[in-house]
Design a binder for these strands. Structure first.
Lengths: 197, 197, 197, 197
DNA sequence: GATGAATGAGCTTTCATTCAT
DNA sequence: AATGAATGAAAGCTCATTCAT
């Protein structure tokens, strides 16, 4: 018989919680909701995460690490900065389509519930794996002469604000076209915004 | 005796709720909190707004109208598209600094709590005053040959995602400089992204 | 129609809680239990006492004040120390018989649940009205030459430990006779213990 | 290899539980707490004690037997009643200082949680080893003409109520002096209270 | 219009106990 | 004997909303 290991159980909770939180929001999702979705008793949930808040924090770290790794892979590829921008946009939108809960969690849960992520996630602690890879991307681009040397956060805000904004519009079903059909124009806009003139 | 009109009472609630919701979040703010801040009884609150959700929706309309008017003023000015971009960025950041609750409400309450704004705010109903002025800005820019003719939402996502992202970073105290010190570089990035090449 | 004032409501809770806590113990008594006994909803209970712990603390103060007043009356009477001892013993046992919850609360709830009375009741804060009247009694007795001058707490421990112990034995139905039939022998024992030889 | 016998395991639980119950109270101490302190799994705990309540009852018996033996030793000694009183007081305070958990358990757990000790400890069943030795002490004292012949429980209440009260005051850090510095005055008070005039 | 006591459903969390391994 | 994941009932507490006054 295939036993379910403690680690697998935890993963099950992470997956279920990610979906529920991103769909219904942090406060509307209850611990019983999560437990039911994993097929577990409420009491047992607390053997894996000591509180709902802790779970929420672990989820950000999980996503941040996941996205960080994806960007790292792109950073390592021997391609131009313009191509990297395209690759990041494509990767981001692919995730937004295939595992929307990851991006949505970021946008709707992490970015909006200060109270929850206050302690333990001050500043950028919980999203540093992701942010630092974006720094690498930007510094590389500047170094090889493709990108203008500007304050990192101005570039970062453009890049992530833009992508986040688009995913948001898509989520609201406001976009007339499918998300990925915007990849080219968005990549172009970003490149135009950041490149040396 | 100076009587307080029904309309003034409503405004008082709007102001108080805007601050509380944007600071503490929609779910953490209670109706008693709001009533207390206005100096009104809980029961009386319900004479002005039939539910907490309704209040939240009226707040978006309020902000959206407010921002729409500001952009309309800029649209009417006889200045270049590049200057309009600057003006919008400056206006947005000025509000973000002087009345942060307006922008924060948008970012942290409206954009993140689908459940609340579901009924009655489908699609862009509740933010149309604002979005349509941005459309005017964009169409004017294209028409006069300053901006590339692309899908509106791609440009909109860039503009608002970028600005929202920066305000968010500022709110998290992540930005090394004051928000307004980024105005020039951001305006430049946006213009570069959208202009005809 | 006779309206129930806020103060009366609070008294109702005090009375009900005193009975329940003393009969079933602090932890076994639930807030729903208390609310049900007063004929009130759980939610409303919290309009009167912000927590179960706070209620417990107010109860000690209530009892301590009540007992303090009783002893004060006795202290004021123009009788001998020996007669005062008798009067205190009688008063104590009368309460123990007529309003047993008061004494039992003291013995079984206050004295035994440090965790609950920790904050806000350090040392003797919550029982000072009672203790200070016992101090008055003792000092008067010493001053008029009836009682040996010894460390107050040694005398206090004797007096209250003894009375508490007897009420406890009575509560356990261990005593072969009714509590008040011990009044004479107990008063005598106490007087013999404390008087000048 | 030094094997740990079943009996030793049980003793380990008794020791750990005694400390935890007396420090934190019966309800605040959890079975996992106890198991952790013994270095044993929760499941295994139930191989030794079939419930938390049963454990609590065995603890009273344990303490009662222990105290009973101590008093028996004193009873056997060829000393005066007055000296026996002193010896008991000293013995009691020594235990209160060296193994405070025993006395505290008695005062704070056994005496205060009727619900727990209801079944199986009715009346004095669970403390009879101790009480009967106190009876022996008292009867001997009366028989040899040292103590007044009064109802046993009146004398018992004085003795144990007094000692318990003092240990309680000490535990609350209310006593200005160390517990043992009161031994003389307390013994004197008790003797004065009980002796023939 | 104004008050705020009252409701009650529902939330997060705890814990004694069981049981498959 | 030993483990510890699993259960599930129940606790304390909150809060949007109502309604008698």
């Amino acid at each position: 018989m295939a036993r379910i290991s403690k680690e697998e159980r935890k993963e099950g909770i992470v997956t279920a919680a990610l979906k529920l939180f991103s769909e219904k929001g942090f406060y509307v999702t209850t611990v019983p909701d999560i437990a039911a979705k994993v097929g577990m008793s409420v009491g047992n949930f607390y053997n894996y995460f000591t509180s709902k808040d802790i779970l929420a924090k672990e989820l950000v770290m999980f996503i941040s690490t996941y996205l960080g790794e994806k960007i790292q892979e792109i950073n390592k590829e021997p391609i131009s900065t313009q191509e990297k921008i395209s690759a990041i946009v494509t990767m981001y939108f692919t995730i937004a389509v295939e595992r929307p809960e990851m991006i949505e969690y970021f946008l709707r849960v992490y970015l909006s519930n200060r109270e929850v992520f206050g302690e333990g996630c001050e500043g950028m602690i919980c999203i540093s794996p992701f942010v630092s890879e974006m720094m690498v991307f930007f510094n590389d681009g500047v170094e090889c002469g493709d990108l203008r040397n500007q304050e990192f956060f101005s570039a970062f805000g453009l890049f992530m604000g833009y992508l986040g904004g688009m995913v948001f519009l898509a989520g609201e079903k406001i976009l007339p076209e499918a998300l990925n059909s915007y990849e080219a124009s968005i990549s172009e806009n970003i490149y135009n915004a950041l490149r040396v003139n």
